[in-house]
């Protein structure tokens, strides 16, 4: 016998909600999913979009349903990964037509002079995710500034946030641990556009099912450069936890939201990068250091902690041989 929807008690339930254990039919699920996103964002409108089809779809729908009065735009980053991003950008372009939203694509190549393909050629597969992550964060800000938007919405979902809480514990990164559950970042300074995560409380399972049931056009291929191995551990752990107790994802976020840091623990002081003006807790921002490393042929410059060298970079001085030898690409 089919299970009936716990909300309308009329139609057949189509999914079991991981957060609460309720069973919903398609229509009630759509309604609940959308309304929950609405509840999450009602106090702060946003604009812009990433590669997340569901985010774009729901934002557009809610903007019309509730007259947010938002001017939505799609912002996409082209990392320059042949066979991956070029395909997914096709999806974004189709989304643009479907949703009739303006689209801006910023590429690593135009911003930094390097594509991910070229970076991987120099640094290998070990640390490429660090480059990609750092560059993407800044690329989004730069794109947002070009578009003159007030906010960036990213498609981070509950699973992503929970995974980040776990990651930050595993790395002992207390500063990020404190920040990562925030739904919206405050404006951190010049050149940084506040971000928010409207899907922060939406389970990946529900997002995927939403896209599936709504027949949304979405792209799903893993990045060809193998993803960050350490994050992979956290991700598998989270999925295993979820199979034991489905609410665990939201439980972890609750935990993260209720942590606080002991007084007297040193937190990094945010300043600005002396080269590009982007926010940074060091003399040079991570992105400039990584770029400098790439341009000097010393890709490990931004991987470890080499704060001592920042002044040399700023003064455009050469490194000593000893310094250089540590930063050379690994032979592979």
């Amino acid at each position: 016998m089919p299970v009936l929807c716990s909300r309308c008690a009329e139609r057949r339930a189509m999914l079991k909600r991981p957060k609460t254990g309720h069973s919903l039919c398609k229509e009630c699920f759509f309604w609940a999913f959308e309304e929950e996103v609405h509840q999450t964002i009602r106090w702060g409108p946003a604009s812009g979009g990433k590669d997340s089809t569901v985010l774009a779809h729901v934002m557009k729908l809610l903007n019309e349903r509730y007259s947010y009065g938002l001017e939505l735009m799609l912002l996409s980053v082209d990392e320059g990964i042949t066979g991956y991003r070029d395909d997914s950008l096709e999806t974004v372009k189709r989304n643009q037509q479907q949703y009739e939203l303006p689209l801006k694509v910023v590429s690593y190549e135009e911003l930094y002079g390097w594509t991910m393909d070229a970076i991987v050629k120099q640094v290998g597969l070990k640390n490429n995710c660090t480059f990609c992550g750092v560059f993407r964060r800044q690329a989004l800000d730069r794109g947002a500034i070009m578009l003159k938007v007030d906010k960036i919405c990213t498609g981070h979902n509950a699973d992503d946030v929970a995974e980040t809480v776990l990651m930050n514990i595993l790395r002992g990164d207390i500063a990020r641990l404190r920040r990562c559950t925030a739904i919206s970042t405050a404006s951190e300074g010049e050149g940084v556009v506040p971000r928010c995560k409207p899907l922060k409380y939406a389970y990946e399972k529900e997002i995927v099912l939403y896209a599936y049931f709504k027949r949304l056009d979405y792209f799903s291929t893993e990045c060809i450069y193998s993803p960050n191995a350490y994050r992979g551990y956290a991700r598998n752990f989270l999925k295993d936890l979820e199979s034991i107790r489905p609410s665990v994802i939201i439980d972890i976020i609750h935990s993260g939201e209720n942590l606080s840091v002991r007084e007297g623990v040193k937190m990094p002081v945010q300043g600005t990068c002396s080269r590009c003006g982007y926010i940074s807790s060091q003399a040079l921002c991570k992105s400039c250091v990584l770029l400098e490393g790439l341009n000097r042929g010393l890709p490990k410059l931004g991987i470890g902690k080499h704060h001592r060298l920042h002044n040399k970079i700023l003064a455009q001085q050469p490194f000593t041989e000893k310094e250089e030898s540590k930063l050379k690409p690994v032979e592979f």
Partner: peptide, 9 residues
């Protein structure tokens, strides 16, 4: 997305 809070050390 492969990383949530991107610029890890």
């Amino acid at each position: 997305m492969c990383q949530v809070d991107e610029d890890y050390h």
